[in-house]
Structures are given as C-alpha cells and as structure tokens.
C-alpha cells in the first residue's frame, strides 16, 4: 500500500510529463496565433461553446430567477398604470399607422423618380443600405447591389446632399462601401469658390473631415463648399462633399489646420445612389446597360 502510494505521487514515474507539457504549450501557441490574426477557429470555438452552454444556463439561472420573481410580484397598482400607458400608446400608434399608407405611396412615387434619373447626367441607381460595420472605428456599409448590377470597385456613392463614400468590395449581389469619414479614406476635392485643390481625409468621426495639406496662406474660409475635383479618378467632378468648418492658421506651422463637415447624412441615410460617370469606358458602359436591362 505504501509502495503504491509512492508510485501515484512520484513525478518521476509520470511518463514524459515534460514532453507532454511542451507539446501542449506549443499547441496553445499555434492556436493563439491562428485565433489572433483571423477567425480560423470559429468552428472550434462554437463546438466548445456548445459544450459549455449548459453551465452558462445554470450560472444565469439565479439572475433570471430574480428577474422572474420581480416580474411576478409587481403590485397591482403598477400593472394598472402600465396598462393605461400601453392603451394610450396603442391609440397613438394606430393613428400613425393611418398615415403609413399615404406615406408609402409617396415613397413609391419618389423612388420612381429617382430611378428615372433624368436630372443628373451621370448614370445613377438607388441602393439600400443593408448593414453597417459593427466596429466603431471602421466606417463601412453594405449595400444591396453587386457586380451583377454593374457595380465596380472604387465606384462613387452619394446621397441627396453629398458624397457618401465609395465601393471597396463587390460581391455578386451585395457590395461593401467605405464612408468618406473612415480614417482610411481620402478624397480629392476642390473649393467651389476658387478651384483650390486639396485632399480630404476621413477622421473616424462621422461629422468631420480633415484637410491637412493646405498651406497657411491658402485662400480658404469658413463656410466654403468643397466639391469633388474628379482628379482621383473614382469620383466624377462637381459633387458636393463638405462645408469648411474651422480654419486654424498657426504661424509656426507649415500647414493650416482645416476641418470640414460632410454634407451627406452619413449616419442617417438608408438609401444611397451609385454613380456611373457620364462617359464610361466601354466595359463599364456594358455593365451599365446590363444593369438597366436587369432593372426593367
């Protein structure tokens, strides 16, 4: 008995303990490397999460129990108050519902007008925003048109007020677009008043663009309208982008500190317009024609 006890606890008798430990450490490092860069291991993670799920349910049970107790012991008075409030709300909602029909008709009409695209010389098509990037530091959206509609990488996107962004990735039915406020986005612009050319950088804030390359003596003022210059190739010229906000000239610095407010309601739009510039190259013209025939 004593001897067997000795065997069970003597580390020297545990076979290849060191080797096993080294192997597991190496395995952990490989897992972490795979997990850190990309999401290669989502299936593994999901499988383990499924195994852990019962434990999580048990852990959550007390919390849910207290919530349940709380709900069940609300006084009659509170319930009556809530009932009255809900009734009032229902009245209000049904009144609003009446308006919905007429609004819907109006919406259809407006969309038809947009689709007709007579006012703009460039080809335009309306797209709906399907989703936004969950990462708060990445300003990108997903729209419901893709390469089968003739969308191409780098295509300009505008809304009713100004430039929204450009397409960065096209799928067959959807595309991803970068907003002009994304820190990675740059846009060649010019001042409408005097044609001064510069570049507008996204800042990561929805309401601000930076114009970092304007010399101190540049002729730019608060309230100047910035439009696309068309020099970058992606955007057709003349679309409004932003209005200059603050102009800060610091004598010691080579460049003025200029910021601007985007005109497009970047965080409010649901519909955007894709632009095919006025005289597209033959290949793109075909794409546009395809899109048109697809529409009609």
């Amino acid at each position: 008995m004593v001897a067997s006890r000795g065997n069970t606890t003597n580390p020297a008798r545990i076979p290849v303990l060191g080797l096993r430990t080294l192997f597991l450490i190496a395995l952990s490092i490989v897992l972490m490397a795979l997990d850190n860069r990309e999401n290669h291991l989502n299936t593994v993670r999901d499988a383990i999460a499924a195994a852990v799920y019962p434990i999580q349910v048990v852990v959550d049970a007390p919390v849910r129990f207290f919530v349940w107790i709380n709900e069940n012991t609300q006084s009659r008075n509170e319930l009556e108050l809530e009932n009255a409030r809900l009734k009032a709300e229902k009245l209000l909602t049904s009144a609003r519902l009446l308006q919905l029909e007429s609004l819907k008709a109006e919406n259809d009409r407006l969309r038809e007008m947009l689709e007709a695209r007579q006012q703009v010389k460039d080809e335009v098509r309306v797209a709906e925003i399907m989703g936004v990037d969950a990462n708060p530091f990445r300003h990108s959206i997903v729209i419901d048109v893709g390469s089968s509609d003739g969308v191409y990488d780098g295509q300009a996107i505008v809304d009713a007020d100004g430039v929204v962004g450009q397409v960065i990735e096209t799928g067959p039915r959807t595309s991803q677009a970068l907003l002009i406020s994304d820190p990675d986005h740059t846009l060649p612009v010019e001042v409408l008043r005097n044609g001064l050319r510069t570049i507008a950088f996204g800042t990561g804030e929805l309401g601000r663009l930076d114009l970092p390359f304007l010399p101190n003596n540049a002729d730019i003022e608060e309230g100047d309208l910035l439009v696309t210059s068309g020099l970058g190739g992606a955007f057709p010229p003349g679309y409004p982008v932003a209005r200059v906000g603050t102009v800060l000239r610091i004598p010691q610095q080579p460049f003025a500190d200029v910021s601007a407010r985007p005109l497009a309601a970047l965080d409010q739009v649901r519909e955007v317009m894709l632009i095919w510039p006025g005289e597209p190259e033959p290949a793109q013209a075909d794409a546009v024609n395809d899109a048109e025939s697809g529409n009609e």
């Binding site: 490989v30 897992l31 999580q56």
Partner: peptide, 13 residues
C-alpha cells in the same frame, strides 16, 4: 478561453 472570450489557447497555456 471560450467562456471568457479570450484568445483560444491563452488560459490553456
């Protein structure tokens, strides 16, 4: 690691 949402392999190591 999975339950805490950390890097897969971190607590394991």
């Amino acid at each position: 690691d999975v339950s805490q949402g950390t890097l897969l392999g971190q607590h394991a190591l």
